[in-house]
Design a protein around this nucleic acid. Structure first.
Length: 867
RNA sequence: GCCGCUGUGGUGAAAUUGGUAUACACGCAACACUCAAAAUGUUGAGGGGGAAACCCCGUGUCGGUUCGAGUCCGACCAGCGGCACCA
């Protein structure tokens, strides 16, 4: 009797049907009960496999989120079977604007909202059968977690790596908070899309620029994709150039100008200064129209801000009335204020010439003389450059005319000679600049880690009079006063807990909502006992994620119920055996992360910040490695079937819970890994999922063919295919080529289906190969064979290269075109093969009447006859 | 503008790294089973020509290197990503 079932399920006589619901829930319970996913307490050869932890938004997961998690799950299951001790944890990045905005919108306290959302996320993840060790779960909003975030910040503060700044920073008028450069996209707020304003504000800033060179250099140690490394290189933006020092005529001021394209230095005819350059007012002292110039400059700054700091088409400027005396004998150069000069790059002052597009445009507009010294090889073009019809900027291929020493030389070839020339004559010195800016680290929002600092007026006075300074009020190198009056909360008083408030909406005044809570703000100064106030800004959402990978390792000492790291805090060092150093052996056991998976959108945010914090902790000798993430793969997005990003806004979200209910977690897992190359963005297609389901059903049906009897005739073709597949699946998982691993498993399954009977050994091997992808169904089938121990704990099958047969087919080519296939017999010599082939009618027909010039034979592959 | 990545059937994509282009899967068509459908199985399929054997063309475009190029080199085109008034 046939029965109409759902349109994909099969019904099979004489065999239990493949009921994914029953199987999947059954095995999850067993795994949980037997604690098979518990991390080894003392790892042997370790493999740390990490997902970027999510921030638990209220929307829950869509079908695209688990792709990376499935991949790490497959990878870590494979590594486990290969005998590694694995660490594969999961946690929650729950501070920051997304969680807070969700909470405000839904009128729930962020803490409650986070708890609720974490539950939803966790349930959705658990359904997929991941091998996470939930004993190591972390949550950045847990005070037991963020006390360490605060501690690391304080250690940076105490070493002068955190400083108070009043410089204008990016301000998002809609999120009502200051932002770092990394939080912008195209001059707009990365979160809400509002146009950013520049606003002078009191901020805490981390000196990430101190690490710029190492962040750049150490990229070479990493096995990351080129595109991500390149993004970081662009972001750090190193350029090597020269600094020229020039006196200003009629004053005792000297200015410095930076140039990375100094090859045509002999062409400089004027100087521009940024309209917001701090030196400008001083420069204008004694100039009659000083006020006019300053007003004009202020307008340029305003215009720039209104244009969202993007390139403006029109260059504008005004003459300052001052001249520099050029160190390289270009004479007296007029100084102009120019709209395109940036105060915060290089020195903010530039020597200009005919060999820069903007300078050229500017000079033409204001009729400033130009004198080109660099020309293209093409004489017609060179003439145009000479006549100032076109601007020539190619410092590589251009030919120099001046100075005489370099006449006729190609600029790109003699860059080093020019550097030496400038250095030798003391005309300029080398200087490296970076586009990377220090990290604006405070937010005027509620939902973040409180910055554990206190401001004390009395201590400030004492700091300013030298005697009262404490160590961290002094810059190591210069002795200069640093953050006077700011006192660190003592380690033993950490965490500084986020107080409960009634209104956690941003004030918009540039003050954090915490500023209104007197009981939080007012405190005794930990240093002098006088009246003091707490810092009320909070940390950015990136703080907790900058070291979380290490927190998973720290959890080894505790159990689930005692909370994360509920040990006393005392600095980084083990003076009292209570600092971060007590975890050193755990860090040594597990760090660095061996395989890190996440979104490419973090290339210039989290992935830079975490490397910076890691390097700091490396310098503090807490971590033993220079880098946190040795290998990184970015997950290609799963797009909606309509080709757009999956988003609630477009109403095109596909919920994994529904997919799992109808098709099963195993099918979803296989499908997402089979879709295409891991790093590709691919549109979801529920239709296509049927192939993955059919594959699992085929594997299910194969159990009928299994026999315990020793098969008399060993099919050598099958044997070869099996070993080939073992080899391929292992290599493919290693390289994250999951799609081809699955296709080779499909080929093997097809071959097995054609067998009368299958030996138990072969079937077991096949199950093992599939188990990382489809853990539930393979566990069930494995148990059906009588295995008592989980397939998860079984060792990965070995392959024998001897058993992989070489192809016996030889492609016959005439002049490189394939014309026939030749079936070789074993033990044929090259000579035999050639003779046989030249005798084939299909070959004869081509060579008839022509001369065979050459025969190329590639063993076992190709024989090419050249006519 | 600069830098990086990618371009292969109707679709997602393979290709041992210079050696039989289109594996595997979806979809499609025909057939088998069925009263019928579903499910499953078998077969077919890059384009063009031909009754057929077979032939010609074909991996974004145009050139080059090579016995042989999807793969290497040069120029260009398109898409995606990063940076961008960065001197």
């Amino acid at each position: 009797m046939n029965k109409l079932r759902s349109n994909y399920a099969i019904f099979y006589y004489g065999m239990k049907e493949y009921n994914h619901k029953k199987i999947e829930s059954k095995w999850k319970k067993v795994w949980d009960k037997k604690k098979i996913f518990k991390t080894d307490a003392s790892p042997k050869e370790k493999c740390y496999v990490l997902d970027m932890f999510p921030y638990p938004s209220g929307d829950g997961l869509h079908v695209g989120h688990p792709k990376g998690y499935i991949a790490t799950d497959v990878y870590s299951r494979y590594k486990k079977a290969k005998g590694f001790s694995i660490l594969h944890p999961m946690g929650w990045d729950a501070f920051g604007l997304p969680a807070e905005n969700f909470a405000i919108k839904n009128k729930i306290h962020p803490e409650i909202a986070v708890k609720k959302n974490v539950n939803t996320f966790k349930k959705q993840l658990e359904v997929l059968g991941f091998n996470y060790d939930w004993n190591r779960e972390i949550n950045t909003t847990d005070p037991e977690y963020y006390k360490w975030t605060q501690l690391i910040f304080l250690e940076m503060f105490k070493r002068g790596l955190a400083y108070e700044s009043f410089e204008p920073i990016n301000w998002c008028p809609s999120c009502k908070t200051g932002l770092a450069n990394e939080d912008l996209e195209d001059g707009k707020c990365e979160r809400c899309g509002s146009v950013i304003e520049k606003k002078p504000m009191r901020q805490w800033v981390l000196k990430i620029t101190d690490y710029a060179e190492r962040l750049l250099e150490d990229l070479n140690l990493l096995n990351w994709s080129d595109s991500i490394k390149e993004s970081q290189r662009n972001w750090i933006g190193k350029s090597e150039g020269m600094i020229f020092t020039s006196p200003i005529k009629g004053t005792d001021i000297k200015i410095e100008t930076f140039s990375a394209h100094f090859e045509a230095f002999a062409a400089d005819t004027f100087v521009v200064i940024a309209p917001d350059h701090p030196l400008l007012p001083k420069l204008l002292e004694g100039i009659p129209n000083k006020k006019e110039i300053l007003d004009f400059s202020a307008r340029l700054v305003k215009n720039r801000s209104e244009a969202g700091f993007k390139e403006q088409k029109e260059v504008e400027g005004i003459f300052t009335g001052r001249y520099t005396i050029d160190p390289v004998e270009n004479g007296e150069l007029p100084i102009w204020v120019a709209s395109y000069a940036l105060a915060d790059y290089g020195t903010g002052i530039v020597k200009c010439s005919a060999h820069d597009e903007r300078d050229f445009k500017f000079a033409k507009k204001y009729k400033i003389p130009l004198k080109p010294v660099l020309f293209p090889a093409d004489s017609v073009l060179a003439e145009k450059v000479r006549n100032l019809e076109i601007c020539f900027t190619d410092m590589k291929s251009g030919v120099l005319k001046n100075p005489k020493e370099f006449d006729g030389k190609v600029a790109g070839n003699i860059r080093n000679e020019i550097i030496k020339y400038l250095e030798k004559n003391k005309l300029a010195k080398r200087k490296t600049t970076y586009k990377l800016r220090d990290w604006v680290f405070s937010r005027q929002r509620y939902w973040g880690e409180p910055i554990p600092l206190v401001f004390c007026v009395q201590c400030k006075k004492r700091a300013e009079t030298q005697e009262g300074r404490i160590e961290y009020h002094k810059n190591f190198n210069t002795g200069e006063l640093l953050n006077p009056g700011w006192i660190a909360i003592p380690d033993e008083d950490l965490p500084v807990k986020l107080p409960k408030v009634k209104s956690y909406e941003p004030s918009g005044t540039g003050e954090s909502p915490l500023a209104n809570i007197a009981s939080f703000v007012n405190i005794k100064c930990p240093k002098c006992g006088g009246k003091a106030q707490r810092e009320t800004n909070t940390m950015p959402q990136w703080a907790g994620s900058s070291w979380y990978y290490a927190a998973y390792a720290m959890k080894s000492k505790t159990t689930r119920s005692t909370g994360l790291l509920s040990t006393p805090v005392n600095g980084l060092k083990a003076k009292t055996e209570k600092g971060l150093e007590q975890f050193k052996s755990a860090f040594e056991s597990w760090l660095p992360v061996d395989m890190y998976i996440g979104g490419a959108e973090h290339a210039t945010r989290h992935l830079i910040y975490a490397r910076f914090w890691h390097k700091f902790l490396y310098d503090m000798k807490i971590f033993a490695t220079k880098e946190p993430f040795m290998r990184f793969k970015n997950v290609g997005l799963i797009m909606a079937p309509d080709g757009r990003k999956m988003s609630k806004r477009f109403g095109n979200v596909i919920n994994p819970d529904e997919i799992v209910a109808t098709w099963g977690a195993d099918t979803l897992r296989v499908y997402e890994m089979f879709m295409g190359p891991f790093e590709n963005a691919i549109a979801w297609d529920t239709q296509n999922m049927i192939g993955s389901r059919r594959f699992l059903e085929k594997i299910w049906r194969l159990q009928e063919k299994v026999t315990n009897k020793k098969l008399e005739v060993i099919n050598s073709d099958l044997q070869s295919l099996l070993h080939q597949t073992i080899k391929k699946v292992g290599e493919d998982i290693e390289n994250f080529n999951f799609n081809t691993a699955i296709s080779s498993l499909m080929i093997l399954a097809g071959a097995l289906e054609n067998q009368e009977k299958i030996s138990k050994e072969i079937y077991e091997t096949v199950l093992q190969l599939i188990s990382p992808f489809a853990p539930h169904i393979t566990e069930e089938l494995w148990a059906n064979l009588g295995n008592k121990k989980s397939i998860y704990l079984s060792p990965w099958p070995m392959f024998d290269s001897q058993k992989i047969k070489q192809s016996s087919k030889l492609a016959i080519q005439i002049n490189g075109k394939t014309r026939d296939i030749f079936e070789m017999e074993s033990e044929m010599s090259e000579k035999d093969i050639k003779e046989k082939i030249l005798d084939l009618p299909s070959v004869k027909k081509w060579i008839e009447g022509k001369e065979v010039k050459r025969i190329i034979y590639v063993k076992g592959k190709i024989l090419n006859i050249v006519l």
